[in-house]
Design a protein around this nucleic acid. Structure first.
Lengths: 102, 102
DNA sequence: TTAATATATTATTATATTGTAATATGTCAA
DNA sequence: TTGACATATTACAATATAATAATATATTAA
């Protein structure tokens, strides 16, 4: 009983830690914008650069960070790197945020 | 036309900036947990301290930060300070996050 | 192979956030 | 008014993040 309660508290805390790093990875104006675009379909780094008006270096760093955090995936096709929202959950998240606040 | 487009891009960027500070204010395991509890109803600082296992000082700082960011409100009743989720939007946000990831 | 394009990496400085301890303030009951 | 409880503030060291410039790596076309 007390043990189960502790386990469930541990689980909740663990979830909150995961969630907070996920939200941190999204907590930047440009990264929100980037994910907003990727939620509509995959884009190359160059396309994102045009859409988001951000320096090449920073864009690359943002994308890599979001990839490490599990927000996006990428796959190279020829000389372009295509980035996309990682999965349905991520798309739902950004859409929910937009639906609530925009 | 080009003017309108620029205005709308400016609006989107502005929204993204607001959103990112809102998400930053939520981007901490304890703050997510705190808001999760507050979404179910107002609580005193002492109650939150028991629920979230966080030091008094840090809890106070977290709450004040979330208040400044517009995530929560507070009202003193006697010697207790009651905190609550600020509005429907905030409750929807935390509930959406929980629904998607928990 | 070379030039051009696309993307990633590194290094660095500036700024922000976290955690903690110590102290201060506000409110009530006795 | 004093003591006890509830909450806020301040100060500080440690760590994380942001922005920028410079350089490196990959891929393709010629």
């Amino acid at each position: 009983m007390s043990v189960n309660k502790n386990i469930s508290i541990a689980k909740i805390q663990c979830k909150c830690t995961q969630l907070s790093s996920l939200l941190s990875a999204l907590s930047h104006p440009q990264r929100i914008m980037i994910l907003g675009h990727l939620a509509k379909g995959e884009k190359t780094v160059t396309e994102l650069q045009r859409l988001c008006k951000v320096s090449q270096s920073q864009l690359s760093q943002f994308l890599i960070r979001m990839k490490l955090q599990g927000l996006v995936t990428c796959s190279r096709k020829g000389r372009f790197q295509y980035y996309a929202a990682k999965d349905k959950k991520i798309i739902k998240l950004i859409e929910a945020i937009q639906a609530i606040f925009c």
